[in-house]
């Protein structure tokens, strides 16, 4: 979901596009070692104009989940909204060109100021709207000794999200400063108490990327997973950005540990995936089983000394392909199997 994101964010205005050009080359340089990436990149690039048009027509749909929590569906990663007396909290921000529509959808739910944005990871389809949405929000009372308001919402993320969005002094950063997280954490988790509920931002190490957070709304009983869980494709883990198949499976198990179904393994805790439909524990359990089974199969083949081509030929994903597989698009089944193989074998 990196590639298409990089294209869309650049489409707002000419200077942004040139900045984006650098952003692309940044990813580009990081990716030189991976031959497979070349193909993906070209494909994403070709769909650039098309993507732009699609965004114009995108509508933002609002799905009430439970408690204080809503799910916004548009293009890019799902947005989670938590709204209450103290204001509005968002998990992820989709693409920048959608921000006006996202804000309009939020305003249907609440007129309170946007206080927090939490990024589940750094990819552009989840952070593209950071700057434009944070700008509309405020952070109350910054710093003792003054009634200051930070004129933008606080953006919370794992430290590695900031690292990947920013750059050392003198180097062109892949994203504008105003889109960067303002409040990061390094290990374990970060806790908030907002709108009368405890919120846990929990780090999932080396999963979809090296900076994934899952967000757990305790009183509403809703988990927002980011891209460690999607219902639309096989697990995608960004090997270049420190992701791994085992990290994704660990993260799925962590979410399952948090989730408690209400009755007959249904309802109870609701789970908002990074992409796709609203889920509960039963859904993510099936997904975890799938990911684990495929991992075990590929692992066994690697142990037998099979090459990547041999593994692919054996079709370790066969019975899942109709549901999650793809032969076209930015992420094919082939690429998934290859990524699992590389992740487990440590071969680049």
């Amino acid at each position: 979901m990196t590639d298409s994101a990089a294209n869309t964010t650049g489409s707002q205005k000419p200077e942004a596009r040139s900045q984006n050009g650098k952003a692309i080359s940044f990813f580009w340089r990081r990716s030189l070692l991976v031959s497979g990436f070349l193909f993906v990149f070209g494909l994403a690039h070709a769909s650039y104009a098309q993507q732009q048009q699609n965004l114009d027509k995108v509508e933002i749909h609002v799905l009430p989940v439970q408690g204080n929590v809503y799910m916004l569906v548009g293009a890019g990663g799902n947005i989670t909204v938590q709204a209450g007396n103290q204001g509005v909290l968002l998990v992820d921000t989709q693409f920048a060109p959608l921000s006006d529509k996202v804000l309009a959808a939020i305003r249907q739910l609440s007129n309170k100021p946007i206080r927090y944005i939490i990024n589940t990871h750094y990819h552009g389809d989840h952070t593209g709207g950071n700057e434009s949405i944070a700008k509309v929000g405020t952070t109350p009372n910054v710093g003792p000794g003054a009634n200051l308001q930070r004129p933008t919402a606080t953006i919370i993320a794992h430290e590695n999200v900031l690292n990947r969005m920013s750059a050392p002094a003198g180097v062109q950063a892949p994203t504008p400063t105003a889109a960067w997280p303002t409040d990061t954490y390094v290990s374990g988790q970060k806790e908030l108490f907002f709108n009368e509920e405890g919120i846990e931002v929990i780090h999932a190490p080396a999963a979809h990327t090296d900076g994934d957070s899952i967000v757990y709304f305790r009183r509403s009983d809703v988990v927002s997973t980011g891209d460690v869980f999607v219902t639309t494709s096989y697990p995608y883990f960004d090997l270049q950005a420190g992701g791994s198949i085992n990290g994704v499976i660990d993260a799925l198990n962590r979410i399952i540990q948090i989730a408690i179904p209400k009755h007959e393994q249904e309802g109870g805790t609701y789970i908002i995936p990074g992409h796709g439909r609203l889920c509960d524990e039963a859904d993510i359990v099936e997904y975890r089983d799938m990911a684990t089974i495929i991992r075990d199969r590929v692992q066994a083949m690697i142990k037998k000394g099979m090459t990547l081509d041999q593994v692919k030929a054996a079709r370790p994903t066969k019975e899942y392909d109709r549901r999650y597989g793809s032969t076209t698009g930015p992420r094919t089944t082939d690429m998934f199997v290859e990524a699992v193989y590389r992740s487990l074998s440590g071969k680049k």
Binding site: P140, N141, V142, G143, P144, G145, A146, N147, D183
Partner: peptide
Amino acid sequence: SGNWLWPCE
């Protein structure tokens, strides 16, 4: 005036 707040995170 001023200084009635003490944010802490």
